[in-house]
Design a binder for these strands. Structure first.
Length: 262
DNA sequence: TCCTAAATCAAAG
DNA sequence: CTTTGATTTAGGA
């Protein structure tokens, strides 16, 4: 009878590609973004296989990070100095593994314009009038928490891999998308005018330096500017949706921008 | 079998 | 650490 040993099952290569391993790591983090070192740690903590030959697989992992559009580099905030950038998942890459295989996707995720940068993330947020409202990391969390939930290993300490599709219900990525909640009238108060410089300060180094700060881009004319004072407590505001069921221009604009994203 | 995603090796910035 | 290229390996229809 075979017994566990150095070549035992637990030391076999887990049935996950580096891409899925990385996606798991990022998704499992509270802020939905991790540094390279964090990703290494996540993998090594869970899979003994990857506690060896680190030079080899870590090089491959790094290659994946740069090469695949599904991974987005997020600049550090100046109040969180340290080594390396953060890595997050691209907002539109949520259905990467919907075929249930974590070894090989049906198609490699490619961004529309070929290049995917943090700017894409910012633009996405901006389109949703969320730019001034919440930090990038929270955005990623909201955006991904539901749709990528099933990437998570059932337990944090796996000695051998378990195939997720056996014990995790698959759900459409769009199903649990909570943008509506985020944009609900209860969460916003409406203000006139453009977002303040302070509001923009959350979103990466472009607006960071206190000197020579470029003026914030004007918001699109057709989108109202929704600003939630930060970090002030929220107070319910008068709803903008009208009684007869039709949306105000406000809501329509938001709906349109959301529909573009889905 | 074929297509191409993923892994590997590794140089260069 | 990050990006890129070249090449090989291998998943899966």
């Amino acid at each position: 009878m075979p017994r566990p040993g150095r070549n035992s099952y637990g030391e076999q290569k887990p049935p996950y590609s580096y891409i899925s391993l990385t996606a798991m790591a990022i998704q499992s983090s509270p802020e939905k973004m991790l540094t390279l070192a964090d990703i290494y740690k996540f993998i090594m903590d869970r899979f003994s296989f990857y506690r060896k030959n680190t030079k080899r697989w870590q090089n491959s992992l790094r290659h994946n990070l740069s090469f695949n559009d599904c991974f987005v580099k997020i600049a550090r905030r100046p109040d969180r100095p340290g080594k390396g950038s953060y890595w997050a998942l691209h907002p539109n890459s949520g259905t990467m593994f919907e075929n249930g295989s974590f070894l090989r996707r049906r198609k490699r995720y490619k961004s529309q314009n070929g290049k995917t940068t943090e700017e894409d993330g910012k633009k996405t947020i901006q389109q949703m009038s969320m730019l001034p409202d919440m930090p990038v990391d929270l955005f990623w969390q909201q955006h991904f928490a539901a749709s990528v939930q099933h990437f998570l290993p059932p337990r944090p300490t796996l000695t051998h891999p378990i195939l997720f599709q056996q014990n995790t219900p698959k759900q459409p990525a769009k199903k649990s998308f909570t943008i509506d909640e985020i944009l609900s009238n209860d969460n916003f108060i409406q203000q006139g005018g453009a977002p303040t410089m302070q509001n923009y300060a959350f979103f990466g180094q472009q607006f960071w330096p206190p000197f020579a700060r470029p003026p914030p881009p004007p918001p699109p004319a057709h989108y109202p500017v929704l600003v939630r004072p930060f970090p002030v407590k929220l107070t319910p505001q008068t709803p903008t949706t009208q009684e007869n069921g039709t949306s105000s221009g406000n809501d329509q604009a938001i709906d349109e921008s959301i529909n573009q994203l889905l």
